[in-house]
Design a protein around this nucleic acid. Structure first.
Lengths: 235, 235
DNA sequence: CAGTGGTCTAGACCACGAA
DNA sequence: TCGTGGTCTAGACCACTGA
């Protein structure tokens, strides 16, 4: 736990508790320097974190405003979603039905997305995932075999990301593209949706810390089961 | 233009030109300190910017990798989208047809979203917007009248955000929620879509630098006209 | 004008990964 | 062990806002 994280934590707590009310200025950075016995750079970095969270906004010559004080869902799907359902929906009952589990050489599109050459085999996995026994999402996933050794049906019936965690694999981030689509036959059959029920598709590439893509996938949800929220802070 | 922006700009250019190839380490921060005659804090901040863009990834004890070198669209809709179409689609022909332009007291939902009390009137605007004469999106917008004086039909037929710019109004950021939906009658009539064509809806609240919400809106696109991309960097 | 936050420095210490 | 990036400091200068 770094100093600026501690400082940010304390200020965040004061905002969420209402000690610093919405639409007012919080104390200036020099005051925080004295209170917490840290340098102003550290205070500045802490406040910058809170700004990225959308909790405050700093303006030169004015001060730092509280944008919102509580109860607002904080970018709920953004940070957690790439790790799949198991972590994102803790406390709910998750299970998967494996519709396809193959190993094959990658198509050109997959080569490009995963930045691999044609001779490295990839897993192709299609899973139907249930939350509390309701069909929730169909995930179509490609992963290079050299990054994920010994994947088994048992693992993909549970959680792939839990397995990757156990392997000590760490992620740098992800690219996502979100769009609406008409339901395919697969969607209609397994997501229990009608021919005119839209589908929300999230396409993503997940990157490891060492810069290699580890996953290219498309997830399809029924339109009434999933929304995606984004926080956009102007720099 | 700050020093760290200059440094980031130079390094970015080298990455995009291929001078620092994908999947390799760029020079370490101390080397850059010597080359650019700046402090390491400044180099660090510059590289941090590139990391937020998803261009590189730094790892303690290892170095800084190049994640991707070029051609990838850089978070295209994320940063620009809240300012509406006029700025986001420069070079295309944009025009609007005003379907509704009213002033009224806000409902409870609008009061909550715009954080105003019931006695402040709000504009309610519905616009159908065309790109190159093709119907593109229906925007349903609420704005408090005290923040946006003298809005006229002429302005909303053009670009609201261009007008706000002229007023010197500046934005801090936005919250968005993205979902798929079935087409409403309005959608079918104006977006020229069939009863089973899905719609992509983006709901957003835009905040000013002084922390007040200035806009609550829902934008609906035909599913094949719009996708939304997000870059997620793990901190 | 005074007060705010943004940036920048030179140097320091530390955590981490790889050999 | 060494080289890497992450953090932190004390102090400085500047840009911006509002009175």
């Amino acid at each position: 736990m770094t100093k600026y994280e501690k400082v940010a934590g304390i200020i965040r707590k004061r905002i969420l508790s209402g000690e610093y009310p919405e639409n007012t200025l919080i104390p200036n950075q020099t005051d925080f320097v004295e209170e917490f016995n840290v340098s102003r750079m550290t205070v500045n970095k802490a406040i910058n974190m809170l700004m990225m969270e959308g909790l405050v906004y700093s303006q030169r010559g004015v001060g730092t405003y509280v944008l919102r004080n509580s109860s607002f869902k904080r970018s709920p799907t953004l940070a957690n979603d790439y790790t799949g359902l198991t972590k994102g929906l803790k406390g709910r009952k998750i299970r998967s039905k494996v519709l396809l589990f193959n190993v094959d050489f990658p198509s050109e599109e997959i080569q490009e997305q995963l930045k691999i050459s044609s001779h490295i085999p990839v897993y192709e996995i299609i899973r139907l995932r249930f939350v509390d026994d309701e069909p929730f999402v169909i995930e179509h996933t490609f992963m290079p075999t050299d990054l994920v050794p010994n994947l088994t049906t048992e693992i993909i019936e549970q959680s792939i990301y839990t397995y990757l965690d156990e392997l000590g694999i760490e992620f740098a981030g992800a690219h996502r593209s979100i769009q609406a689509d008409k339901p395919s036959e697969l969607d209609q059959k397994y997501l229990d949706c009608a021919a005119d029920d839209p589908v929300l598709e999230v396409e993503q590439v997940v990157y490891l810390k060492n810069s290699r893509p580890i996953e290219y996938s498309k997830s399809r949800n029924r339109y009434d089961k999933k929304r995606y929220t984004v926080l956009d802070v102007i720099q």
